[in-house]
Amino acid sequence: MLFRQYLHTNPIAASYLFGCGSQAQGVVVDPLEEEVDFYIEEAKKLGMNIVYVIDTHLHADHVSGGRKLADKTGAEYLLHRSADAAFPFTPVEDGEERMAGNTKLTFLHTPGHTPEHISIVVTDRTRGDEPWFVLTGHTLMVGDVGRTELASNLEEGATQLYRSLFEKLWKLDDHLEVYPGAFSGSVCGRALSGKPMSTIGFEKRFNKALQMKAQDEFVAFMTENVPPQPENFKSIRLRNQGKE
C-alpha cells in the first residue's frame, strides 16, 4: 500500500492519499479546495489513478475540494447516504465495503460531529485480512473528539458522538492506527495533540473524552468549555452542501 498524510496549516486540517500501488488505484480523503491540483500531481508521482474521493463529512471549517477533484479525475465522490447535499454523489452505507485494487475500505457511520459523518477502516489485502488503520475525520482525534454543535444541537450531537465512539470505534482492535482529520490548532477540538496519528488503544487509555464512559457524563463533558465557533462556519458548510 502507498500512503500519504498531508498536514495543512491554513486552515489546520489533515488530508490523505493512499491505495494500491500494484493496481494503480488511489483514494483521496478530505481534500482541500485549494490543493486539488496538488493531489493530482501527487497521484501521478506515485503512479496511481484516483478512483475514489471521499469526504468524511460536510465540513464547516474549510471548503472541500472533493467535488472539484472528482470532476477533474473522473473519480467517484463518496459521502454517507444521509448527507444533506444539493448535488449528486455516490452514497455509502454503514458497513459497506469498497475495493481500490487490493485496498479494502469499510465505512462506518459515526455521527456526532455532523449527522452524516463517516469513519473509514482500511485493510491492505496484500499484507493480511485484518484492518491496518482507520481514518476518523473529526469523530476521534488525537487527544480529543470533535465538537458537536456546528451542524446540530449541542446535546443531540454529543449523544450521537457517544454512540459512535463507544458502540463502533471502541470495538476496533487496539493496535489499529488512528488518522484524524485535524490536529493541534484546529477549532474543531479542545485538547488536540500536535502529533497527528495515534492508535485505538492509546486513545482508549489517554484521551480524556473516552474516560467518560457513562452517556450522561460524556454529554456533560462535551457541553463544557466549547471553543469559539469558526468564522463563517454556516456559510462554509452551506457551500460544501452545494447550497451557496
Rank of each mutant, 00 (worst) to 15 (best):
V226I: 14
H175I: 11
P31L: 08
M1W: 09
E97D: 09
Y39R: 10
C20H: 08
H62E: 10
A14D: 02
Q23Y: 03
V219R: 03
V29M: 03
T126W: 15
D173N: 12
D144C: 09
P227M: 12
A14E: 14
T9H: 12
D37C: 04
Y77F: 06
A24P: 00
L161S: 07
Q160S: 12
L192Q: 00
S119H: 00
R190M: 09
A70S: 13
F87E: 01
R81P: 03
G146R: 04
D37N: 11
N102A: 11
Q229L: 12
G74F: 01
P230N: 05
G65F: 12
H175D: 08
F166N: 01
A43M: 04
S119E: 03
M222I: 10
F206L: 15
L176I: 05
K72H: 10
T114V: 08
G181P: 00
D61Q: 02
N225M: 09
K213R: 14
Q211Y: 01
V219H: 03
I200G: 07
K44C: 13
V63A: 04
G128K: 05
R190A: 13
L192P: 01
T110N: 04
F218H: 00
A191K: 14
P91F: 10
S164P: 00
A24I: 05
K171L: 14
Q215E: 15
L238G: 01
A60Q: 05
I120W: 11
S198L: 08
N240W: 02
T126P: 02
G65A: 03
Q25M: 13
V226F: 03
G19Y: 07
T223S: 12
L2C: 02
T199P: 07
R98K: 15
S193P: 01
K171N: 08
F3M: 06
R127L: 15
T106K: 15
A86H: 05
E33H: 11
G137M: 11
A220Q: 15
R163K: 11
A43P: 01
F133T: 13
P230L: 11
P115A: 14
A220F: 03
E76Y: 06
R190F: 15
V63D: 02
F133C: 15
D144K: 03
R98N: 05
E224C: 12
L140Y: 05
R190Y: 12
G157I: 13
N240H: 03
E116C: 10
Y179Q: 15
D84Q: 13
V51D: 01
T123L: 07
K104L: 07
L176Y: 14
S15D: 10
L108F: 02
